[in-house]
Simulated assay, not measured.
Amino acid sequence: MRLWQVLCGAALLLSSALVSADPLADLKLFYAEVSSLSGDFEQRLLDEDGDTLERYAGRFWMQRPGRFLWLYDTPYEQQLGADGETLWHYDVDLRQITMRDAATSLSGTPAELLGGDLSQLDRYKLTRLSDADGLEWLQLLPHSDSSDFEEIRIGMAGGQPAQVLLSDRLGQTTAMILHDLKRNPKIGAERFSLQVPEGVTVVDERPGA
């Protein structure tokens, strides 16, 4: 279950190099101006002492509403994608695809927060934090106790999220940084369409499947 949460949490973020004045205003403007994006990402799982337990890297594409594809190159090849209705995880080494209902699986996750509309912010208490590492930080505390994440911190730069730190209830933190981004690129619908390779097992966990 944690793998789904971590991968989804990474699904819809972007970075840049310039620092702006109001991170909350920038985040709201991000909803209004960014309909699609693509780039490279690095994702790390940190323990309570800040040591790296796992490291992932790859490329991603996103298009509102609810469509994304993340291709993980390291440490092993995998894919996480959604077409607005179905969320899937493809483990290339295991040759297995797991399919789930997107609305249910993404509910309350950072993927839903950053990939949805401005109303998503109503689910969180937002607090302006001190600047650090050349970024302006926002703290998001979920109003619901059922959230898998105890705290989300977003570092804003150049009017958009540059880093996101997701702290879970087990004391671990997922840190995400994205690079070489293209803002509002044209992305064909086929990018978000699941193609099942021959010989791959499909596990369909959607209701009614």
Rank of each mutant, 00 (worst) to 15 (best):
V6Y: 06
L24I: 07
A25M: 06
F30S: 11
S36T: 07
S36P: 10
S36Q: 02
R44H: 09
L46H: 11
E48T: 13
D51W: 14
L53T: 08
A57I: 01
P65L: 09
P65V: 04
L69I: 01
L71I: 12
L71A: 12
Y72T: 15
T74W: 10
Y76D: 15
E77A: 14
G81F: 03
G84Q: 08
Y90K: 13
D91C: 09
V92F: 03
D93M: 08
R95H: 06
T98C: 10
T98A: 07
D101A: 14
D101M: 09
A102T: 02
G108L: 00
A111D: 00
L114T: 03
L114E: 06
G115N: 03
G116N: 01
L118W: 05
L118N: 02
S119T: 12
L126K: 08
T127A: 02
A132K: 01
W137P: 00
L138V: 04
Q139L: 10
L140A: 11
L141K: 11
D145F: 01
S147Q: 00
F149I: 00
R153L: 05
M156N: 00
G158W: 02
A162M: 06
V164M: 07
V164I: 06
L166E: 08
L170K: 10
T174M: 10
A175T: 08
A175S: 15
I177C: 11
L178C: 15
L181F: 05
P185A: 11
G188I: 08
V200Q: 07
V203Y: 12
V203M: 12
R206Y: 04
